[in-house]
């Protein structure tokens, strides 16, 4: 009987919480020591850290998608496009034959919209496209309104990011720059690209709509 009681006391005494109870029952002034961290507590903490890390990851993804806009989100999900025939071209002449043209010049915007080329937005396979801006700006010369230009951001932003042009080439405020054809043919303003890597100033009606032949 006594041996049985001792065994029970020894066994229960091995557990931290019950040991404390037993000691305080038998001895006065047995200082209650804080229980050491149990396995359960550690596991709970680990689980909490995991949950928080998961929440942080989700929040980061959501904020990144919100910044990128719907176009980028859709792009990020689409798989890598197959190689286009034009990418096999060895010379410019071969490539030029495959590109659509307007005014006897390659139409790079049409090449993208027709899917002849699918230029990637960045070196990283996960790189997202810059948003396309559907903003038209009418630029009307004070001295001759017939030479008004409807500048369309949309085709430009299919290729370029805002920072490619603003503010180094064009100030953000409409009309802040005085753009003349002389400056353009000298390679300033539109002439930074047009006449070099985009259609030249010879194609008047593509910007000055009033000059289009009916």
């Amino acid at each position: 009987m006594m041996v049985g009681c001792l065994m029970v006391m020894l066994l229960t005494g091995c557990q931290a919480a019950t040991r404390q109870k037993m000691l305080s029952l038998v001895f006065d002034g047995a200082t209650p020591t804080p229980p050491p961290p149990t396995r359960r507590l550690r596991r709970d903490l680990l689980r909490e850290i995991e949950t928080l890390q998961e929440q942080l990851r989700q929040a980061r993804e959501e904020s990144a998608l919100a910044q990128q806009g719907p176009a980028r989100a859709a792009e990020a999900q689409t798989p890598a496009a197959p190689a286009r025939p034009i990418e096999q071209a060895r010379t410019w002449d071969e490539a030029a034959k495959l590109l659509p043209s307007s005014d006897d010049m390659p139409d790079w915007v049409k090449a993208v919209s027709d899917g002849v080329i699918a230029p990637k937005p960045g070196l990283d396979p996960q790189a997202a496209r810059e948003p396309v801006l559907p903003l038209d700006v009418e630029l009307v010369p004070a001295d001759d309104p017939t030479y008004a230009v409807l500048f369309r951001h949309e085709p430009h932003t299919a290729w370029l990011s805002c920072a490619n042009c603003h503010p180094a080439i064009f100030q953000m405020k409409r009309g802040a720059d005085t753009i003349t054809m002389d400056k353009i043919t000298e390679g300033k303003y539109c002439g930074v690209c047009h006449g070099k890597v985009a259609f030249s100033a010879d194609a008047c009606a593509r910007c000055h709509q009033a000059m289009a032949t009916p």
Binding site: A89, P119, I169
Partner: peptide
């Protein structure tokens, strides 16, 4: 330029890697 252009948009390289 054309070889690179049929594969990448302007902003993939400009102006982070190369000035315009």
């Amino acid at each position: 330029h054309w070889i690179h252009r049929i594969r990448y948009r302007c902003y993939a390289c400009h102006a982070s890697l190369f000035e315009m």
